[in-house]
Design a protein around this nucleic acid. Structure first.
Length: 558
RNA sequence: GGACAUGUAGCCAAGCCAGGAUAUGGCAUCAGCCUCCUAAGCUGAAAAUCCAGGGUUCGAAUCCCUGCAUGUCCGCCA
């Protein structure tokens, strides 16, 4: 209902003032929304803004469109307080199992995320990509878009050559129960170490890259077996985090199906293209990018950038919006890609960048073996959650405690990541990761479990009639926040900022907890009890729907 | 050296793009609340030159400029 009311008030103010921008702001403590349009009118008309605000408020209040909204002027502000009818309509809407689902759209979206090199396990930096990406995928679905989540799999680059070299020469045994990605990374770290000590072996990597480029069967098999083993482990990690891709796209496809050669031919004809023997690069200095954008090496082999161009054209052909989630280290190549696609008259992807996650001791590096894996993080978090639930609910059997601990752990990890806006770099801190109080998923899950518990108890005492008469301030504040959920979903996909949803659901849990404390439900009587139970149900449903978009399980008991 | 991002109480964040009312939360600290719907909860106290300096504006945490600090990138790697 929130959106509808805001639109209604905007239209009303435009009509009264004749201003295009009626300067709607959040009303804070004073109102649900407010307008500061009196300030700008005061300047134009050289009058006191408070007098103008008073006049606008008076006119607005008399219009039939303002029904159910209390309009008043406080100094230069025109304040709008939504009435009980608004709360009632909102709560009624929030009882729908599909609450927050926006009308179906036809624009097909391809959202690419994670796409980590298969040279080792995902670490706590990689999963920032996964969590942002997967949350966006879920938000787009909630917003009515058909979405395909893709993982672009580097199965042939230099990093993979290093892995393959390691697998070929090191002959490690796989430890009992060792995941594929953990096994592969040992080769990668050791091969990098050897390469540093003996730079003379470098030509061996170059040779392997030329072999795979040429499609040498044995090399292809070596590369792909290594990649597949690693991906097997990565998939387990992603599944544990509730992150799902619809399609894995292998980079080699674009080399072998001719797409890359086609796009290179097109790009090669641009005036910005520079050729020197086989070497080809773009001079984008006219577009504010000073670095050479190399697309073919002087030995004729291809580079990642060229295959990436082909990949994006391929995506364009099957969607209306293409969105990539990339680490901030990709900003340069991201803008090179966008610029180049625009130059050949093709659609550029929208790119969501996120800044780095580092450790207290410094940057993470897969190559150097310095990282905390997502698996380790999840295991520690689950251990901690299990301790907690064992203290709180000793009567539960082990299987239930394990199940709850897993859901709490996944939630805690995902929420910690998604709640921080993407443009902030962060430092990983175990203390924060393992803190399950407030501003965390368990806090929100707990509010949901409380709602379920109340409804469960009410059911034992018989049925209740839905009632939408809210008057208590705690009831109204909660109902009004519930009303905003569909608006938040829309904001997340418009701004590509999933952390807005994390902030929203935390505020919702805050308001529910205050309501829980100050407005007794089961002990209330008659229509008040009915109304509060109705509100609890709407809260439960909204918390559950919001958590679902965040990829976090809404536990019924914990 | 150049480019991008960030800088908000001891610590971590929201707010900034679309300027407006006493700057919003959490952690840590202190003081309270379980004969009462799960205390992973609630209430209160204390804590901020919104990095610094200029500018625009009736009004700046928010917009612009300069500087400083931190992170990232600047490869015929990905």
């Amino acid at each position: 209902m929130y959106r509808e009311y805001v639109h209604k008030i905007e239209a009303l103010l435009r009509e009264i003032t004749g201003e295009e921008d009626v300067l709607i702001t959040d009303g804070g403590d004073h109102a649900d929304i407010a307008s500061t349009v009196a300030f700008s009118l005061a300047k134009k008309e050289r009058k006191n803004p408070a007098a103008i605000a008073a006049k606008i408020a008076e006119m607005a209040a008399s219009l039939p469109e303002a029904k159910g909204v209390e309009v008043s002027a406080k100094g230069p502000y025109v304040n709008f307080v939504f009435g009980r009818e608004y709360a009632a309509e909102s709560v009624r809407a929030a009882l729908s199992p599909k609450y927050g689902q926006l009308p179906a759209r036809t624009e097909r979206v391809i959202l690419e995320h994670t796409s980590a090199n298969p040279n080792g396990p995902l670490h706590v930096g990689h999963i920032r990509n996964s969590v942002i990406g997967d949350t966006l995928v879920r938000a787009f679905r909630k917003a009515g878009y058909p979405v395909e989540a893709q993982y672009y799999l580097n199965d042939m680059g230099r990093q993979i050559a290093i892995v393959a070299w390691g697998v070929k020469h090191l002959h490690y045994d796989r430890l009992p129960g060792e995941k594929g990605d953990d096994f592969i990374v040992r080769h990668y770290v050791e091969a990098n170490k050897i390469m540093k000590e003996k730079p003379e072996i470098e030509p061996e990597f170059d040779a392997m890259m030329e072999m795979i480029e040429a499609g040498d069967l044995e090399t292809v098999r070596l590369f792909h077996d290594s990649v597949d083993l690693c991906v097997e482990g990565i998939l387990e990690t992603l599944a544990a985090l509730n992150v799902h891709h619809d399609r894995f796209v292998r980079e080699t496809i674009f080399l072998w199906n001719g797409d890359m050669q086609k796009v290179l031919a097109r790009v090669g004809m641009l005036p910005e293209a520079q050729h020197d023997g086989q070497l080809m690069f773009l001079d984008l200095s006219g577009r504010g990018i000073d670095n050479r954008y190399v697309l073919r090496r002087s030995n004729g082999t291809s580079v990642y950038a060229a295959r990436d161009l082909a990949f994006h054209l391929w995506k364009n052909a099957q969607c209306d919006r293409s969105i990539d989630v990339l680490g901030a280290d990709h900003k340069l190549i991201g803008s090179q890609l966008q610029t180049t696609l625009a130059m050949i008259g093709e659609r550029s992807p929208e790119i969501v960048y996120f800044e780095f996650v580092s450790l207290l001791e410094g940057a993470m590096t897969t190559r150097g073996g310095v990282f905390i894996t997502a698996d380790e993080l999840l295991a520690e978090t689950k251990k901690r959650a299990l301790e907690e639930i064992t203290v709180r609910r000793p009567e539960l059997n082990m299987a239930d405690r394990e199940r709850i601990a897993s859901a709490v752990a996944v939630g805690a990890v995902r929420y910690d990541i998604v709640q921080v806006s993407a443009e902030k770099s962060t430092v990983f801190d175990w203390k924060v990761a393992l803190d399950f109080e407030r501003q965390s998923a368990p806090y929100v899950q707990y509010a949901h479990a409380r709602a379920c518990s109340i409804l469960e108890k009410a059911k034992e005492e018989g049925s209740f009639a839905e009632n939408y008469t809210f008057s208590d301030p705690y009831e109204l504040a909660l109902a009004k926040h519930i009303a905003r959920f569909p608006y938040v979903i829309e904001m997340v996909v418009v701004e590509l900022r999933p952390h807005l949803l994390a902030t929203y659901v935390r505020d919702l849990a805050d308001l529910f907890n205050s309501f829980y404390r100050f407005a007794p439900v089961l002990r209330a009587e008659g229509s008040v009890r009915d109304a509060r139970l109705t509100l609890v149900d709407a809260s439960r449903n909204t918390l559950s729907a919001a958590l679902d978009v965040l990829g976090i399980e809404a536990l019924e008991s914990m």
